[in-house]
Design a protein around this nucleic acid. Structure first.
Lengths: 334, 334
DNA sequence: TACGTTACCGATACCGGTATCGATACCAGT
DNA sequence: ACTGGTATCGATACCGGTATCGGTAACGTA
């Protein structure tokens, strides 16, 4: 009473296993009559096939491994959405893993994925340790690293420079005349891209003879609640800030809420800046500054790059695809 | 220059394939010396194994298929987080699919997943059409339906009654004295659970001789922007509403933002109510009402149920696990 | 008539592991 | 010395498909 096998379908259709296989795959060398018989038999038996056998035998899978650091930050599910959409119609099936920003866990996930013989791998970031990189190189499948751009790719990379994004945001903010700038940061021990943005931002400040007036950070994951709490602390100590740069938009939303509670006028009195361009920033009652990360596009392009790389001409493809974050200061508008 | 096979590892260790297999799996009937030799050989060759062959041969996989309707609503990634955590240490690997609330797509995804011979399946909702249910029944693996509770499960169900959640929210709101209530809805053609909440809410209104004063809906997916827009429309027509029930918290947040822009006092003047208890509701400058859905717990319990069901005693397990949503009105507090 | 082509089909050998069972070596007990 | 048990190992037969290749029948053409 197991799932029926191809053998059983073939028997019922009165043909060989091979003919049944061809018929169901739409391969050549089968008569229309056989196709018909096999399809009917498969339908009657409720045949669903066995990808394990298929992949083992044909020595290729339709699997694309995807490793992201987190599920609780909406950005990564959005990247996944992009990947899914980029894979649409290709017959490829993404398989996800979540590393929790833990590089050891990431290595284990990748090792596990490799044992499924995926056709390609999409992983987040460029900061894998040598052990992981070795694993990937040895596997000899296309590896696409996404989200980041600051570093050396194993194979391909689709992303943006977070250092640059941080720098540009700083420059835009400075250009708007703000000078007393604070920073609030989440997951400061592991969110490498946030660290890069902060570094880029600080470098730009330094170029202008400035530094952060004050900084509040936490090891906790980013959340609007954390953004609100850190902002309250920050403003308690430094009420005279005219701008707060946040590790991302979740934090920035919380920061804005703190300002509202405190009766601070945003953005006139104090500018709140984040990163990502989350959907919510377009709904807030006042505008905050943000860099809109092209995360969906990153997912789509990574998927398409994976497809292209699988189809042979791997050396002909660009190793780096840079997508740009678009800055909105928010106070310019309206 | 492919990935090394077990055969090669065995050869290098000077033992048979079978002994190498046992050594790497930690099975009995191998000497310590052999284990040592094999492990070293595997290490040197960078052996990663082949799950396809393993699963085909042993006739079981460590795969758990998971189908969710959307990636862009943070709730579902959170459920996935719960599933991942519930599977932690079990050696089981979740595989995800996104149906976009499309039942045909869901059927295709499920069919595809079944061809990977998963050990269990976790799918969202109870509203699968007969064709899909047949597919699942025939597969004879444990099927866990999640999130909903209003309907007949195929096998197991872990969730909450959305009808009931809607009803309870209505009762709490009525008890607080609100009478002129409006509704804003997203994805009204496909978000079945939101439809059930609304129905429960309306039933409670009716019990009290009331109806929605006004309703604004959209086919678009829920978003705070949509919540804001629909609220603006709603309040333009009916400025005298004292409460707006929203299809979920994303919509509710946007609704709140619209109120803020319009200078309406929340919650005193007008109460905003949503569903889910998203993290952001704890950071907003004013409180909104919400039912906190136990989505992470649902994921965890579904995962554990899957594990339990796989280990044989399937008939002994409870078919329905009800988790409760916890209501906060928001105006009670602070 | 003979021959080449084309369309269709199936036997066989894998793919890379594991299940199963029998073989061997060694030891203790009688 | 013989028996039985235990520890260790390997040969073999799959798992359920596909790749490959050779075979047959039907048909067109020289």
């Amino acid at each position: 009473m197991r799932q029926p096998t191809l053998e059983e379908v073939a028997a019922r259709a009165g043909v060989s296993k091979m003919t049944a296989s061809r018929a169901l795959r739409g391969a050549r060398d089968v008569s229309a009559a056989s196709i018909e018989k096999v399809k009917i038999a498969a339908e009657q038996l409720g045949y669903v096939g066995n990808q394990l056998a298929l992949s083992l035998s044909s020595r290729r899978t339709n699997l694309i491994g995807v490793v992201i650091p987190s599920m609780s930050n909406i950005v990564f599910p959005e990247v996944l959405g992009g990947i899914i959409s980029g894979l649409e119609g290709s017959g490829l099936q993404p398989v996800f893993g979540v590393s929790d920003y833990d590089l050891d866990k990431e290595r284990d996930i990748i090792r596990n994925m490799l044992s499924w013989q995926p056709a390609a791998l999409i992983i987040t970031g460029l900061d894998q340790p040598e052990e992981t990189r070795k694993l990937l190189r040895q596997s000899d499948i296309p590896v696409i690293q996404i989200m980041d751009l600051d570093g050396e790719p194993i194979d391909f990379v689709v992303g943006l420079s977070h250092t640059q994004a941080g720098r540009e945001m700083a420059e835009a903010i400075l250009a708007s005349g703000r000078k007393r700038i604070g920073y609030i940061g989440s997951a400061v021990d592991r969110d490498r891209r946030a660290i890069k943005r902060r570094a880029g931002f600080e470098a730009a400040l330094q170029d202008n003879g400035l530094t952060f007036v004050s900084v509040e950070t936490s090891l906790d994951a980013s959340s609007s609640r954390l953004g609100r709490d850190l902002t309250e602390r920050l403003l308690a100590r430094h009420p005279d800030l005219d701008c707060i740069y946040c590790s991302n938009d979740d934090m920035a939303a919380g920061s804005l809420f703190a300002c509202m509670k405190l009766g601070r006028a945003v953005p006139d009195d104090i500018l709140i800046a984040g990163f990502n361009g989350l959907e919510i920033t377009s709904a807030l009652p006042v505008r905050i500054a943000t860099s809109t990360s092209p995360r969906r596009a990153i997912g789509e392009q990574a998927a398409q790059l994976a497809l292209a790389a699988m189809n042979g001409n791997r050396k002909d493809l660009a190793r780096r695809i840079e997508l740009l974050a678009e800055i909105t200061l928010g106070d310019a508008e309206k």
